[in-house]
Design a protein around this nucleic acid. Structure first.
Length: 379
RNA sequence: AGGCCUACAAACCGU
C-alpha cells in the first residue's frame, strides 16, 4: 500500500495526467481504494489536482466512501491551485468542519489571483493563525511588491521559518533591489536549498549572470529546480551550449526543465532543435505548447503556429495572444483583430494592448484610436 | 486512542 502511495505521489509531482489516469484506473478498477479508508482516495484527489485536473479530483472525491478533513482540504486545494476559486469557495461553505489549513488554502488562492485585499481581510478574521498562515500573508505582500506590509508582517512574527526568510528574497530582486536581497540572504539565520536557489534566480532575473554563476558554484546543495534556473541563466546570456550541458548532466528532469530547454532553443533562434526536444518531452503542460506556438508566430511561420494552436490540448489567453502575434507578423491585421474581438473567450488587457501596439507600429493611427475607444479593458 | 496523507518560500508562456 505504501508502494502504491509512493507511485501516486510521484505521479502528481511529475504532473503527468496520462499516467495519473492509468494509475487511477488500475487502483479503482480493482477496488483497492475502497479498502483503505480515505488514505488512497485522498492521495488520488491530490494527484489529479497537481496534474491540473480538478474535475478528475472531484470525481474521485465524490465516489470516495470515507471522507475526512484531509479529503476536504485536498479537494479544496485542487480547486484552488487550478484557479477555480468559485468551486473552492462553494466547497469551503459546504465543509462539515474546517481548520486553519482550509482557511489558509483559501487565503493563498485569493492572493494568487490578485485578490490581496480579500486575503488580508480573511487573515484578520482567522480564529487561530499559525506560522504557515502568517507566511502566506507575508509572501502575498512581498510578491505584490508591498514591501512595507511585508516587513511589517515579518517583524510582527514571533516565530519565523525558512519560508518566512525566503519569501523576502525574490520580490526584492524583481524590484531591482538585488543588493537588498543579498543582504537578507547573508543575514538569514536559516536557509536551505530553496533559499539559495531563490538567490540564484534573483541574480538571473536581474541580469547579474556572473553573480549567478558564482553563487551556483558555491552552493552546498542543488536540486532539479536549481539546475533548471541555471539553464535559463545560460539561455539569458546566449550560452546555448552551456545550457545544454546542464540539461544533459541532470539526473532528474521535470516538465519545467524540459520546457526551459525548449524555450532556450526557441529564444535563441534554434527552432528545429526546439521542435525536436518538444516532441521528445515525456509529458506536457500547456506552457511548452505556448512556447512553441509563440516561437513560430514570431518567426513568421504562420502554418506551424496554427498547427500548434489547433493540436494543443487546451488554449489559454497566452495561446490566443500568440495567434494575434502570428497574424500581425504576417500583416494580416484583420484576422488578428477578429481573434481579439470575436474569438478570444478570455480577452485581457495584454491581448488588447498587443493589437494596439501592432496598429501603432504599423502607423495605422486611425485603427489604433478606434480600437482604443472600444477596448473593454485598458491600463 | 494515536500516527500517516492536506495549507506557506525557489525555476517555464503573451503587450
Amino acid at each position: 500500500i505504501e508502494h502504491l502511495a509512493r507511485l501516486i505521489r510521484s505521479c502528481g509531482n511529475a504532473r503527468d495526467l496520462r499516467q495519473a489516469q492509468r494509475l487511477n484506473c488500475a487502483i479503482h478498477g480493482r477496488g483497492i481504494d475502497r479498502r483503505h479508508g480515505s488514505y488512497l482516495s485522498n492521495l488520488l484527489v491530490e494527484m489529479y489536482g497537481k496534474c491540473g485536473s480538478a474535475a478528475d479530483s472531484f470525481a474521485v472525491f465524490q465516489r470516495a466512501r470515507d471522507r475526512n478533513l484531509y479529503s476536504w482540504n485536498m479537494m479544496l486545494q485542487a480547486f484552488a491551485v487550478n484557479g477555480d476559486l468559485s468551486s473552492a469557495k462553494n466547497l469551503f461553505d459546504r465543509m462539515p468542519q474546517k481548520d486553519v489549513v482550509s482557511w489558509t488554502a483559501i487565503m493563498a488562492a485569493l492572493a494568487a489571483n490578485g485578490r490581496l485585499n480579500e486575503a488580508s481581510l480573511l487573515f484578520d478574521s482567522l480564529p487561530c493563525p499559525n506560522l504557515v498562515s502568517r507566511n502566506v500573508m507575508l509572501a502575498a505582500y512581498a510578491k505584490a511588491g508591498h514591501l512595507e506590509s511585508a516587513w511589517k508582517a515579518f517583524n510582527a512574527m514571533g516565530e519565523r521559518s525558512v519560508a518566512s526568510w525566503t519569501s523576502m528574497i525574490q520580490p526584492l530582486a524583481e524590484l531591482g533591489k538585488v543588493e537588498v536581497a543579498q543582504q537578507i540572504y547573508d543575514r538569514t539565520p536559516m536557509w536551505n536549498v530553496i533559499t539559495s536557489t531563490s538567490m540564484l534566480a534573483a541574480y538571473t532575473q536581474s541580469g547579474n549572470f556572473d553573480m549567478a554563476l558564482e553563487a551556483f558554484d558555491s552552493m552546498p546543495e542543488i536540486n532539479v529546480v536549481t539546475c533548471t534556473v541555471m539553464i535559463s541563466c545560460y539561455a539569458a546570456c546566449f550560452q546555448i551550449e552551456e545550457a545544454l550541458k546542464v540539461f544533459d548532466s541532470m539526473l532528474e528532469r521535470n516538465v519545467v526543465t524540459w520546457t526551459e530547454m525548449v524555450h532556450a532553443y526557441a529564444d535563441l533562434g534554434h527552432l528545429e532543435e526546439a521542435k525536436l526536444l518538444f516532441y521528445q518531452m515525456p509529458c506536457w503542460t500547456l506552457v511548452p505548447w505556448n512556447v512553441m506556438l509563440l516561437a513560430y508566430a514570431m518567426a513568421g511561420h504562420l502554418e506551424d503556429a496554427k498547427l500548434m494552436f489547433e493540436t494543443s490540448p487546451s488554449r489559454s489567453v497566452f495561446s490566443w495572444t500568440a495567434m494575434i502575434q502570428a497574424y500581425s507578423c504576417r500583416g494580416d491585421f484583420a484576422q488578428a483583430e477578429d481573434i481579439l474581438l470575436c474569438k478570444i473567450p478570455m480577452m485581457d488587457v495584454v491581448a488588447a494592448n498587443t493589437m494596439l501596439a501592432t496598429y501603432t507600429l504599423a502607423g495605422c493611427t486611425d485603427k489604433a484610436e478606434r480600437l482604443f475607444e472600444t477596448m473593454p479593458v485598458r491600463d
